[in-house]
Write a protein that binds this DNA or RNA. Structure first.
Length: 432
RNA sequence: GGGUCGGUGUCCGAGUGGCCAAAGGAAGCAGACUGUAAAUCUGCCGGCUCAGCCUACGGGGGUUCGAAUCCCUCCCGGCCCA
């Protein structure tokens, strides 16, 4: 046979986005048009994080190739919890928390996928599986869905097996049922949106194939699954986690500046693959940047390009330029020469806190106390440690005396104090 | 319901009467080297009025000069049996 792969298939292959696929035929189907593909996620938080980006951007790549993306928020299954990749039983989500999470996430999705396309056949849609799961009766479910699966088959799934093999923990019946609900989701989407493709991270393979199986049994129809790689960082840890927690897409949880820095700090070893995963540049452009990384790594051209692209996509052009300006002033120029306007620009999104001006009056307030109160350090003890170890800076000037007392003469523009811990952790204290 | 094993610091995990703020590992923080990278090395890694003191080993009570370690009780979890 040896057909030429479609443009989409070769692009996804180039980017290593295809971990497994039930059948390569799916790309022919896509070329023929009229297909929908869905990816689901659990709305366990009020924001998406960078880890969610990969499946969503993969949907976007499909959308650009004529596929209609369906994002399924697991409002119903979110109350259950997917055992895949989890070592422990999930806490169940409260319904009202779930609802508010969904509202917040909806806004973010609009930046990643086209929900306003005039072309109905490719316009993205967001659906919440609680809209069909919550009305499903147990008897109905057991009769229509449960009877199609054998327990021995379900127990054999890796996600379940791993949990059963653990000497402690086990798996509850609730979580055990998760895969059936996800299978039911797929079947429901098949019936209601004519959706025949599901994509997900590689740990979703088992759940996806169960959905395909269910559709075959229920409707005698074919459907497809594509899994994408599970993102890890160079050291094998989960992608998108930093010392301060997850890297969120919500600007109030992770500022555009921090998001920019997150990608800018990608290691040389990882940047090539990350470009392929996240960037919408052409393969030629990406290869060029990879070459530049090899020849002059210290310039970090690829890192800058990727950071810029992601921040612009998630937060817009304005936020990107402000993120770049902040980076400039923090790492390239001396901050005590900045005007108040520039300071605001630079630190508007940086972690900040307010401390009463009154504390500065008279003898002043100790640096340690400011560091602890501002939240830069969690206790006086750890503030003392940082100062003693030479990791503390006030207005970019190293301070090594733990007894240092700060008075109003330290203030920038009469009210700001820029604290820095180590090389990259900044914190602005505003006195009022 | 019965039996049994277990609940230790951010996590994993030693410790079974004093030498325990508690081994070891991971994560994290700072420093050095660099490129705001990786790797490596060094130090730190409960709190405080910081070379001393306070609070801690699931909760409560008890034994003891002294308990994470022993006893009682309660709570929670694993496994096995019913």
């Amino acid at each position: 046979m040896g057909k030429m792969p479609s443009a989409l298939e070769s692009d996804l292959s180039y980017r290593n986005l295809i971990h497994q696929v039930t059948s390569r035929d799916v790309f022919d189907q896509i070329s023929n048009g009229g297909m929908s593909a869905y990816a689901g996620f659990d709305p366990t938080s009020n924001s998406l994080h960078v880890g969610h980006l990969l499946p969503l951007l993969t949907l976007r790549r499909l959308q650009e190739n004529g596929v209609r993306p369906i994002v399924v928020a697991g409002g119903g299954t979110g109350m259950i919890g997917d055992p895949s990749g989890k070592s422990a039983e999930r806490n169940l989500l409260e319904p009202d928390l779930l609802a508010s999470n969904l509202r917040a996430i909806e806004a973010q999705l609009g930046r990643l996928l086209d929900f306003d396309s005039p072309n109905l056949s490719t316009r993205a849609v967001l659906v919440d599986n609680s809209s069909w799961l919550s009305g499903l009766s147990l008897l109905e479910f057991l009769r229509d869905v449960g009877k199609h699966f054998s327990v021995s088959q379900m127990i054999a799934k890796d996600s379940v097996k791993l949990r059963l093999e653990r000497s402690q923990g086990g798996i509850s019946y609730t979580e055990f049922s998760y895969m059936l609900l996800q299978a039911y989701d797929f079947a429901w989407l098949y019936d209601n949106y004519n959706c025949k493709i599901q994509i997900g991270a590689s740990d979703q393979w088992g759940n996806i194939t169960m959905g395909i199986e269910l559709i075959r049994r229920l409707r005698g129809a074919e459907s497809w699954g594509i899994t994408i790689p599970l993102l890890t960082q160079g050291d094998g840890t989960k992608f998108g986690k930093t010392e301060s927690g997850s890297v969120w897409l919500d600007a109030s949880k992770t500022s555009p500046y921090e998001l920019y820095q997150f990608f800018l700090n990608t290691s040389d070893a990882d940047i090539g693959q990350l470009m392929k995963y996240f960037s919408f540049q052409t393969p030629e452009g990406i290869e060029e940047l990879i070459k530049l990384t090899a020849s002059e790594p210290e310039a970090r051209r690829a890192q800058r390009a990727l950071a810029g692209e992601v921040v612009e996509m998630v937060h817009g052009t304005e936020s990107l330029s402000s993120a770049k300006r902040i980076s400039e002033s923090l790492f390239s120029t001396s901050i005590d020469r900045l005007s108040e306007k520039e300071l605001n620009e630079a630190f508007g999104n940086a972690p900040s806190s307010k401390i009463s001006m009154g504390l500065l009056a008279g003898p002043g307030i100790s640096l340690l106390e400011i560091m602890a109160q501002s939240g830069l350090e969690k206790s006086l003890s750890s503030a003392r440690r940082t100062v003693t170890q030479g990791g503390a800076y006030v207005n970019n000037q190293k301070q090594t005396d733990p007894e240092l007392v700060i008075d109003s003469s330290y203030l920038l523009c009469n009210r700001y104090l820029v604290l820095r811990k180590g090389k990259k952790t900044f914190h602005v204290v505003t006195f009022a």
